[in-house]
């Protein structure tokens, strides 16, 4: 009897939470989802429908006069989803645009595995966190100020944010290339110890931190470079910040340091830090860059 009561309660709670959401479903399991909105949470799943959902706001005022009508905006977008967003399918592209730019709720989307994602937001005022998780296809994010959270995405991916930061956690089974760049925000990535990767990390005015446990093998320095006429190019190498970490791992990996000195610093740079290396012999290409902030490369526990 007790068990039946618990079961009944669980079903009631599930039903209640489902009814507390507004949903719009689109039968599409391939193509590219282009999101031109302020923020989003996208999660990959094994299904054939793109499910858009919003938490139901109990305090939301219902305009009785607008019943049976649809909201339009000056760009011609109309609320055809019932969620305040215009969802239009054009060939392989599924375009999502807000009807009201100023009052955008944060959309949650469940995405079939084969649908690619592209997120763009050039607004300086309306920015919310972009969370992408469990996706197995190509990801493309280009934003001005959004913070970006990436969890368990296979790749490949191109991530760009001018003022936001990027926090990413990757699975071991990756597809490259993976490029993450920010001007003012930090870049923080967590990699499994078993991942095979080539790292190209640059921070102009920040520092680079890396976990010793990842055993990053720093690439040997290239020999003095020459130009097309054979004249040698002077190379100036400066390192700071992450030196302690990487030189330590280099000492363990490199037997002949005279010939294979680490590439550290940036030619002719005053403050820039760079790290070029391999994890587990190399594999997927990673490009990590932050102009004014730090870059963290940690082991995923």
């Amino acid at each position: 009897m007790k068990l039946q009561l618990i079961l009944l309660f669980a079903l009631f709670t599930t039903g209640l939470s489902a009814s507390a959401q507004k949903q719009y479903k689109l039968a599409k399991n391939n193509g590219k989802l282009n999101l031109n909105i302020s923020g989003v949470t996208v999660e990959g799943y094994d299904g054939n429908e793109i499910i858009f959902s919003l938490p139901k706001n109990e305090d939301e005022e219902v305009d009785e006069r607008a019943k049976g009508l649809k909201a339009f905006n000056s760009s011609g977008f109309k609320d055809n989803s019932g969620l305040g967003f215009d969802v239009t399918v054009r060939g392989d592209d599924i375009n999502v645009n807000p009807v009201s730019v100023a009052n955008q709720p944060k959309l949650s989307i469940k995405l079939p595995r084969n649908v690619r994602v592209s997120f763009a937001n050039n607004s300086n005022m309306y920015q919310d966190t972009v969370t992408l998780k469990n996706l197995k296809t190509e990801i493309d994010v280009a934003v001005t100020g959004n913070d970006i959270v990436l969890t368990n995405n296979v790749g490949p991916m191109n991530i760009k944010t001018l003022h936001g930061s990027v926090d990413a956690s990757f699975p071991a089974d990756l597809k490259g290339p993976i490029s993450i760049i920010s001007v003012n925000g930090h870049v923080d990535i967590a990699l499994p110890a078993s991942v095979k990767a080539n790292l190209e990390v640059i921070s102009n005015y920040g520092k680079i931190y890396a976990a010793d446990d990842l055993k990053i093998a720093i690439n040997p320095a290239s020999n003095p470079k020459t130009n097309a006429t054979g004249q040698p190019v002077k190379t100036l190498t400066i390192g700071k910040g992450v030196q302690a970490l990487t030189i330590k791992s280099l000492a363990a990996n490199s037997e002949n340091q005279d010939e294979n000195a680490p590439v550290f610093g940036y030619e002719g740079g005053n403050y820039a830090e760079s790290l070029n290396g391999k994890i587990n012999g190399g594999g997927v290409d990673f490009i990590l860059k932050s102009n004014h902030n730090n870059i963290y490369i940690r082991e995923k526990k």
Partner: peptide, 19 residues
């Protein structure tokens, strides 16, 4: 159309900047 691709292309040209 993608800044990441543009930056990567720039890093290639940077290698040969003495030319």
């Amino acid at each position: 159309g993608n800044s990441n691709v543009r930056l990567a292309a720039l890093s290639v040209l940077e290698k040969y900047r003495q030319d």
